[in-house]
Design a protein around this nucleic acid. Structure first.
Lengths: 333, 333
DNA sequence: CTGTTAGCGCATTCAA
DNA sequence: TTGAATGCGCTAACAG
């Protein structure tokens, strides 16, 4: 790495002022074609690259947004990220993609860094922070869009899937198939989506005249291993269960594994439903019935809303609610 | 978002110089406990947050590294990212995770942005750039570590899996099982890993006295859909194939789907081997035989090497070569 | 232990 | 159409 060439170097070499160079670089203001060509030639010859840092300090804008997700290894979030990045790329923004690995402390640390780096906006997915924490964090950012997370503070746009409805739909599907003993692996306690799905599950049970049983619900970490372990425990303790809702598809795949190990056939002995409809859901055996959410669309729309906010359309904090869709496959026909 | 509080504000309010505030913030130099406490109190009261941008401009260090991968939706890369981020987090670095979605233009754009943002180091995974392009890009960064990609320029540390060996191992396994008509879905032409695996495949064939056949090899995009389509085409044109190597596990899963659609049983009619050993490999039916690489370890080690380079241990450009491991499952027993 | 001076590289006034 | 001065917020190098 050679010494960095600065705008001053270019100006000196080209025999013009820094201002002129700046104008050429940013295509701002009128400039005579002659000097422009000349400056461009010098820029190329010297290999000048503008410093985004210096520009950021001067303009207070960085052309960067932060995208924070609980776990980038979860295809649900990597699909969202794809939607975000496609939209961001088109709008000439860079994305700081940060995975918190489900750790609220790490989430705080990451948000702190993003704030210090003066990102122009923040896209926060499924935040695991407590309400007060989240509200205070949000004050630090000029523009925020929340994904799948509500907060008292109404100063953020939001994109979310109606998880209460999703929980209802999945439960109703099982009830309609005659199931009465339906368990739920509810995921991490920090997940609001998880709680919403449980709410929908309770609603559907109530409408069928059934009382929810706490011992049929069990938390778990949000991955295959977590589903595997939790399913083992829940099913061992409650052989009466004939159906199992799972926090997300990763957990559901873990439950599938557990059933295979315990010799319980799916769906004959136990029906299983997941959430999200990640790629893997259709590829495991039996294929997973799941409650789909449009991940790419979530990301794309969220980035669109964020751009709106960054560009000052602060008027209405838009809220986009996407409907879930039940995809019926072999694990719960 | 309220007006940003600066160091000058804190200094004024606390009745000290900016320098003293800076020392407190950065825990540098000796400071009397009294003033330190006082300054800290003011910082808290005013809600001061240092600007990483300004600090970056002053110090020429940003505490940030760039991580560039072809596709974050591929679990292979998200696992690497996890290794990188864990190590980075421990060393107090932030990670700019960028996915190029297999598009070299997008890769160039992303590298350009990272350079302008003055990242302290670059971790470049499976670059899809041509040799010359890559060599010139690397000059722009103070410290670079390459993952699974070689380049003439020897001014970068490197972590890679021995893909030639991997290709050999997989092929030898099939040869040992009696297969003589072995096809290969070779992935994107931009992938060096893909080429290396093909090299290993050729080596193994040669040692068995077999000539490679170009019409048994076919490129494809690096995902399930790509594997599905390519497998359809290759298998329809070459029913004589009894075994199929796949660029990676995603492609292999696609091939599995294709077989299911075409009524070819795996492994009875066609043995299939993938590469990487992503989580999904063990979960599909039949479970995939695959050539594992230690993804988390790759990321972790790569970040370690990058920290070495950033901290000036430029002496030897280290190169870490990790051995692949053949995981034999049902798809190619 | 603390303050002063200077400048990082750029963009935003204004003036010419 | 171009240039000069000023400041973004911070730290490094030197004094005191």
């Amino acid at each position: 790495m050679s010494e960095r060439v600065t705008m001053a170097d270019v100006a000196r070499e080209a025999g013009v002022s820094k201002m002129t160079v700046s104008r050429v670089v940013n295509k701002k203001g009128e400039i005579s074609p002659t000097t422009r060509e000349h400056v461009l030639e010098v820029i190329k010859r010297l290999g000048y690259r503008p410093s985004a840092i210096a520009r950021g300090l001067a303009t207070n804008r960085t052309g960067t947004i932060g995208l924070v997700v609980p776990d980038i290894a979860n295809p649900f979030f990597s699909e969202i990220a794809r939607g975000v990045e496609d939209k961001a790329y088109a709008a000439d923004y860079n994305v700081f993609l940060c995975s918190t690995y489900e750790d609220p402390r790490r989430e705080r640390a990451v948000l702190n860094s993003l704030e210090e780096k003066l990102v122009d906006g923040l896209l926060l997915c499924s935040s695991r922070l407590a309400q007060d924490d989240l509200a205070s964090v949000m004050d630090d950012f000029a523009a925020v869009v929340l994904v799948n997370r509500t907060v008292k503070n109404d100063d953020a746009s939001m994109v979310r899937v109606d998880s209460v409805l999703g929980g209802r739909m999945a439960t109703e599907h099982l009830l309609a198939a005659g199931h009465r003993a339906i368990g739920f692996l509810t995921g991490p306690s920090t997940s609001f989506d998880g709680r919403f799905r449980v709410t929908g599950y309770h609603q559907a049970l109530a409408e069928a005249g059934l009382a929810p049983r706490a011992d049929w619900q069990q938390g778990c970490t949000s991955n295959v291993q977590g589903g595997l372990e939790a399913a083992h425990e829940l099913l061992a303790g409650h052989p009466e269960l004939t159906a199992l809702l799972c926090y997300n598809d990763l957990v559901a795949v873990g439950a599938l594994q557990a059933c295979s190990q315990m010799g319980r056939r799916v769906p004959e002995d136990l029906a299983i439903i997941g959430f999200d409809d990640i790629l893997m859901a259709a590829l495991v055996t039996p294929a997973l019935t799941t409650c789909r959410s449009a991940q790419y669309e979530i990301g794309f729309q969220a980035m669109r809303l964020l751009l709106d906010r960054i560009h000052g359309c602060r008027g209405g904090c838009e809220e986009i609610v996407l409907p879930p869709e039940l995809i019926i496959r072999a694990s719960a026909p």
